[in-house]
């Protein structure tokens, strides 16, 4: 079956534009909204990679849960308005060439390396994924739920206002 590469380029351009917009917006709430758009586009990338279950989990966890958490954290705190240097560090200009050089080098190395990749898509269908997740890897999955429970309890404890002393 022949796939067109055009959807990949559209979705990945959306991902990169939204990620750059997220960093450059001065208003934190605009950054959060473009982060939501970026995560949604990444879910599109997962669908292009035949990972529908991961795409659904991405929408549920990142687009819904983590964005709501971030937006609530932004709404519960107050942010200043001002010029560029109130939002960016002084070292942002210094680190930019290093990041660009490292990014270009790693991209070239990864994109020109030869992989003995297969021609057809290898990601299994959702039934097989569910079998892997809930049978073969069920113990790590349960441990992960315990980790999440402890983390949520810790977050509540950290953010809780102490009323009585």
């Amino acid at each position: 079956m022949e796939f067109s590469p055009i959807p990949f380029y559209i979705v990945s351009a959306l991902v990169i534009i939204c990620a750059i917009a997220m960093i450059y917006f001065k208003e934190l709430i605009y950054s959060a909204l473009s982060m939501v758009a970026c995560f949604m586009a990444i879910a599109g990338i997962y669908i292009l990679l035949n990972a529908e279950l991961v795409a659904g989990a991405q929408v549920l966890i990142y687009v819904a849960a983590i964005s709501i958490l971030v937006i609530f954290a932004i709404m519960l705190t107050r942010h200043r308005k001002g010029d560029f240097w109130l939002f960016f560090h002084r070292q942002s200009v210094v680190t930019l060439p290093f990041v660009v050089v490292a990014g270009i080098v790693l991209t070239v190395v990864l994109a020109t390396a030869a992989y003995d990749s297969s021609e057809e898509a290898l990601n299994p269908p959702d039934e097989e994924m569910a079998r892997l997740l809930f049978q073969d890897y069920s113990f790590p999955f349960e441990v992960l739920s315990l980790v999440l429970l402890v983390a949520i309890m810790g977050a509540i404890l950290l953010a809780m206002r102490e009323r009585r002393r």
Binding site: F72, S145, L148, A151, I152, L158, A159
Partner: peptide, 16 residues
């Protein structure tokens, strides 16, 4: 996914 959700919860709790 699970670990990043835990990290976001604890990190934003610390921020608040």
């Amino acid at each position: 996914f699970g670990l990043s959700a835990a990290e976001a919860a604890v990190g934003l709790g610390i921020a608040i």
